[in-house]
Design a protein around this nucleic acid. Structure first.
Length: 422
RNA sequence: GGAGGGGUGGCAGAGUGGUCGAAUGCGCGUGCUUGGAAAGCACGUAUAGCCGCAAGGCUAUCGGGGGUUCGAAUCCCCCCCCCUCCGCCA
């Protein structure tokens, strides 16, 4: 959520942000609601004040005395009025809050202008996309693929997009996870194993609710299967005030991630490109506002290092205003080259949310300077998503004999130098 | 899942309808005292919203929500969480 004060004091800043993100928001309507809400609030508070004063007077009076009875009659009317106005206030407040939630975060000055994904800026590129295997194939076309990644039986047992990982497929997936976690811990992130279901309050704090409930799987108990570890991880400190000395907090967590993503089809969803359940390690940072942009660069570098060690060609995109998410102030996407498909696959998205998420989740720290609580800045990024990295490895490292060469950094985790589809 | 007991400020813990944002103690901060410290003494010590240039004012918050009442930390209803015992279970 945006700072209401920013809206009041500098609506043009908000208007510019909406324009840069190429969103449609009726800002005038939000401002009108804000004014109306504040007016109603003053009225209700004035009545409350009256009730309070009367209450103190009546405490001193003798119960049942004529003065007391008169006062009760008088205050009955005030009470009724307060109740009525309070109901109106609640309605207004709900509308106001909903309207506030339609305002996007302000993009950072360094975010490039642009509307479509094509206008994202290639910030960096590592590795030679032409230097990979001449035998590259889309991973689902590799001979024996279905032996290790059984989509058909997954569909029978659960549904489309829930593959079984078998033998070397399961092992490579686990090796990647273990490798990611170890590297992230080395980079200073504390490993956390969070719950993989969250309640509605948590899903709301990170912005999945309301509006995006269709993206999550929901249980009978109104718990939501996490779409990313970001949700339970961010909510760890929800409604808390940290000591300034505790910042920054760096954490990483592996969870399976569940996404309904209804309506996707075509080559985007072939094979491992997009599935309903996948493994991912998420990196999360809670930092002092003055440090968040340095921390974003470090976060991106931490995610990049993983791809470098796996010897996978990749590029870093700096997202333009139009392709930046609603809640992000600045975002880099890491895309790995999948030589068989001849396309880039997104494997990490590193974002600075500034105080946008923290305000909604009420995560603060006590400023040493002022002694007052201030909102932290939150950042997160994948480090990394497993199936797409796995897909790129299969394609790029495919040998003439149909085996896949395992990168040196991963061999200790996988236990062999080659993966076999037999 | 069943039975019982709880949830009050940073912590402990009073408060069962009115002057209670809440006694008291601990902790913490400032000052006095002291050669210095401890003890002692004094004062202060939550969060948020709104109004205001400011000083400041007003309002809300006693697990959450709803209700009764002129008035609720206190009474009633629903929900959540914690503890003890029983059942079940990896």
């Amino acid at each position: 959520m945006l700072d209401p004060k920013l809206l009041r004091e500098s609506p043009e800043t908000v208007r510019a942000a909406i324009a840069k993100k190429h969103l449609e928001v009726d800002l005038a309507a939000v401002l009108a609601l804000d004014t109306a809400w504040r007016a109603q609030l003053s009225e209700v508070e004035a009545l409350r004040s009256k009730q309070r004063a009367a209450n103190n007077e009546m405490a001193a009076l003798k119960k049942g005395s004529p003065e007391f009875i008169t006062k009760v009659a008088e205050m009955k009317a005030v009470s009724a009025e307060a109740k009525a106005k309070d109901e109106g206030l609640k309605v207004l407040e709900e509308k106001w809050h909903a309207a506030m939630l339609t305002l996007p975060n302000i993009p950072h000055a360094t975010v490039p202008e642009g509307k479509t994904p094509e206008q994202n800026v290639v910030h960096a590129s590592k590795g030679d996309v032409n230097a990979v295997s001449p035998h590259a194939l889309p991973h689902w076309e590799i001979g024996g693929f279905a032996n290790l990644f059984d989509f058909a039986r997954g569909a029978k047992v659960t549904g489309a997009g829930f593959p079984f990982f078998i033998g070397d497929g399961a092992k490579l997936s686990r090796a990647l996870l273990q490798f990611f976690l170890d590297e992230d811990v080395k980079a200073g992130y504390t490993e956390v194993s969070p719950p993989i279901f969250v309640n509605a309050a948590s899903a709301t704090a990170t912005g999945q609710l309301p509006d995006k409930e269709g993206q999550m799987y929901e249980t009978l108990d109104k718990l939501y299967a996490v779409p990313t570890a970001e949700v339970p991880l961010t909510n760890f400190y929800r409604d808390e005030i940290l000591e300034e000395a505790a910042l920054p907090v760096h954490r990483c967590a592996y969870t399976p991630c569940f996404r309904r993503e209804a309506g996707s089809y075509g080559k985007d969803v072939r094979g491992l490109n997009r599935v309903h359940q996948f493994d991912k390690v998420e990196l999360l940072k809670w930092v002092h506002p003055s440090a968040s942009y340095d921390e974003l660069e470090k976060l991106r570098a931490d995610a990049e290092r993983l791809l470098q060690k796996l010897e996978l060609p990749y590029r870093v995109l700096l997202m333009c205003g139009g392709d930046l998410g609603f809640a992000q102030a600045k975002k880099y996407d890491l895309e790995v080259w999948a030589a068989g498909q001849q396309r880039w696959l997104e494997v990490s998205s590193c974002s600075n949310f500034e105080a946008f998420q923290a305000r909604r989740a009420q995560i603060r720290f006590r400023s040493k300077e002022t002694g007052k609580p201030e909102l932290v800045h939150t950042l997160n990024g994948s480090g990394l998503a497993v199936p797409r990295v796995l897909a790129a490895l299969l394609e790029n490292n495919l040998q003439a004999d149909g085996r896949v060469k395992i990168p040196a950094a991963l061999v200790p985790y996988f236990g062999k130098e080659f993966l076999s589809f037999k």
